[in-house]
Design a protein around this nucleic acid. Structure first.
Length: 633
RNA sequence: GGUCCCGUAGCUCAGUUGGAUAGAGCAACUGCCUUCUAAGCAGUAGGUCUUUGGUUCGAAUCCAAACGGGAUCACCA
């Protein structure tokens, strides 16, 4: 409709304003709730052109639009705003279009280019936590939203399965895992522990052993005993100690950290871990077997967690396969003059002209850094998917700078698709007690949290739900849908780029702006339609339409716009907020009028059609957000 | 210190091409189940949109500075 009026105004500009006008003068917005109107045209831009008061200009536009635009009932001019009231027939026509197209609001599948969406990307030495939940729910929802607007989507994750941190848990397991009567060390099978939890336990175990050993070394240094310490380190420690005098507390703390670092490096256990990494890189059979075994445990654990979360992937990338990639690209870029080499052999890129710093892309010993690998992986993905058009990286905002640099490098290497790469940057999830710190044990474990919200949903549903006739299995499934749905909504309703606070009590709330609120509306409409023995019927365009009914049609008709905005902004929150508004509107309607028990058959049918459309729209939105829409609860 | 992000009600958050009297939820208080699911609805109360200046018909929104919070600036990933 906006477009319709816009074009009409553009065409009629000479007649109306005495000259042609530019499109940006025509500004539409949603009409305020408390005034009459369905669509508002801002009059101010035309005031200068017409050289008259806003009121006169408004009246001129009002008269012209009322006389010349079909679908317009009448207009009201208030304070420089032209509020356009559309005809009931127009709105009923909208409703009938929704009825006719079950996919109303969605674009044709694969009508847009292929996009790869990366999310999750965990380490294999630790279980998933709350931060991963935001990452994964966000990435998965964005993937669905992009698909809904027509993109072909490849969902992927990079599994960080190599490096010194992985060797730490392997080593700790070898050293500290108790041996049972049958001579076996701990496994998920003989302990009943989830694989990722078991491996995570030994990662923590490693750190504990490291701390103890480092403390002992520092104590020796403190007492002046450097017998086992290389000369250079001894000197460094003494220098640092010297520098500590007459400095502020912050500097002292920094120096203490440095000494601690040196001590850790001196520990035998870290040395062993490093040796293990060297062996791994040399494909030592024993180390490799241990690595594949323990990673296998972790993957089994992750699969369980992903299943509970209701997310999946189309393609997996393993860092152990990709970490060598990128070196060739760097060498080629070096030849092309994009990079330069320092005398020690390290390769750099100078981005100072772009307002950034110099950045290392290859170590002096020729090994790859994170950036090298990301360059290689990106290029590789475009080889894997020849029709790939762009990528979305769902990664926390602490890596904003990294991705800025990565995309710039890819651009400079001549890859035009670098312009279609987007870092979906999201803010940290804070706890009421402050930041999550794995060191301090304040991390909220993903499995524990999901179990907790399901338990809560269980208790609340027993208390107030409508479960008659459901089997025990169906009930359990429902608790999961409600608990996980609530958690997803809680994490998705906030603008992704904003840092957010995770309040454990609010996250399992069922009232207000929550997942269960939307699910409840869906369930209530479902049973309502069932009770009414609802049969879809095309609406008659001459049916009477009351204001409260029109409001619902209007909000339903915004679905496509909300979806488009969510896709454009990579923000499921926009879709979540739209749906919340729709449900609130419908709930008000539901409480104020009769539907099933409405005696007038024509009115009853219209209200049932509206209810059916609202239900369908809720279901679509929830599906895009990855949230289940139960038929009863 | 450089760069980037953020600052809206007691709390958590909406408010997107600048637009009308800045909106929700939670918490508090008042009503509404003998009519379709009250996980709901109606209402009361709660604001110096961090501050100052600028741009203009008009600023929570754009610009600048200050203040406050966070991230980042590794031959870590």
């Amino acid at each position: 409709m906006e477009q319709h009026i816009r074009l009409a105004l553009l065409a009629a500009a000479p007649e109306l304003f005495g000259s042609n006008i530019t499109e940006d003068l025509i500004q539409f917005q949603q009409t305020r709730k408390d005034v009459e109107g369905d669509l508002t045209l801002v009059v101010f831009p035309f005031v200068k052109l017409l050289r008259c008061s806003p009121q006169e200009a408004g009246n001129k536009l009002k008269n012209w639009i009322e006389a010349n635009v079909s679908g317009v009932s009448h207009c009201v001019v208030i304070n420089g705003f032209l509020n356009i009231v559309l005809t009931n027939a127009y709105w009923l026509e909208q409703l009938s279009q929704m009825q006719a197209q079950p996919n109303y609001g969605f674009a044709a599948a694969n009508s847009k280019p292929t996009v790869m969406v990366e999310y999750a990307s965990p380490n294999t030495n630790k279980p998933l936590h709350l931060g991963h939940l935001r990452n994964i729910f966000l990435g998965a929802a964005v993937a669905e939203i992009l698909r809904a607007v027509g993109h072909k989507v490849v969902r992927t994750q990079v599994i960080n399965d190599r490096g010194i941190h992985i060797c730490k848990s392997m080593l700790a397991w070898e050293k500290f895992s108790p041996v049972n009567a049958r001579g076996e060390r701990e496994t998920p099978a003989n302990t009943g522990l989830k694989g990722d939890k078991l491996v995570g336990k030994y990662y923590v175990e490693f750190d504990r052993a490291l701390q103890i050993e480092a403390k002992a070394i520092m104590a020796e240094w403190q007492s002046g005993n450097f017998s086992d310490t290389p000369e250079a380190i001894q000197q460094a420690v003494l220098n640092f100690e010297q520098a500590k005098q007459d400095k502020d507390e912050k500097a002292q703390a920094a120096i203490d950290d440095k000494i601690k670092e040196l001590a850790k490096n001196q520990t035998s256990i870290l040395q062993e871990a490093k040796q293990m990494l060297v062996k791994w890189e040399a494909r030592d059979p024993q180390v490799y077997l241990l690595w594949t075994t323990m990673n296998g445990w972790v993957y089994a654990g992750f699969d369980q967690t992903y299943a509970q979360m209701g997310v999946s992937f189309d393609k997996l990338y393993y860092e152990s396969d990709t970490f060598l990639l990128g070196k060739d690209q760097v060498m080629e870029g070096l030849k092309a003059g994009v990079f330069y080499q320092k005398p020690d052999g390290s390769v750099w890129i100078d981005l100072t002209a772009d307002g950034l710093d110099e950045k290392l892309v290859l170590r002096s010993d020729g090994t790859a850094v994170y950036m090298t690998q990301d360059i290689g992986t990106a290029i590789d993905r475009f080889k894997d998917y020849p029709d790939l058009h762009g990528m979305v990286y769902t990664v926390g905002n602490e890596q904003d700078y990294h991705f800025k640099v990565l995309f710039l490098i890819l651009q400079k290497l001549g890859y035009t698709w670098a312009n279609n790469c987007f870092h979906l940057s999201y803010g940290m999830v804070d706890l009421p007690s402050g930041k999550m710190k794995s060191r301090e044990g304040t991390v909220v474990d993903a499995d524990d949290l999901m179990a907790e919200v399901i338990e809560k949903a269980n208790a609340m549903t027993q208390e107030r739900g409508h479960l008659e006739g459901l089997s025990e299995a169906e009930r359990q499934a429902l608790y999961t849908q409600i608990g996980i749905g609530g958690l997803k909504y809680y994490l998705l309703k906030v603008d992704p780029k904003k840092r957010m606070l995770f309040n454990p009590e609010e996250s399992i709330d069922l009232t207000g702006n929550t997942g269960p609120f939307l699910q409840y509306a869906h369930a209530r409409i479902s049973t309502l339609l069932e009770k009414a023995s609802y049969q879809a019927k095309a609406v008659d365009l001459s049916t009477a339409l009351r204001p409260e009914e029109k409001e619902i049609v209007k909000q339903l008709s915004y679905f496509e716009h909300a979806l488009q905005e969510a896709a454009k902004g990579y923000s499921p929150a926009l879709l979540a907020n739209y749906t919340y508004e729709l449900v609130k509107l419908y709930n008000t309607f539901y409480q104020s009028v009769k539907i099933v028990i409405e005696p007038d058959q024509e009115v009853r049918q219209l209200r049932l059609e509206l209810s059916a459309q609202v239900r369908q729209t809720i279901a679509k939105s929830l599906a895009l957000l990855g949230i289940a829409a139960p038929a009863r609860m």
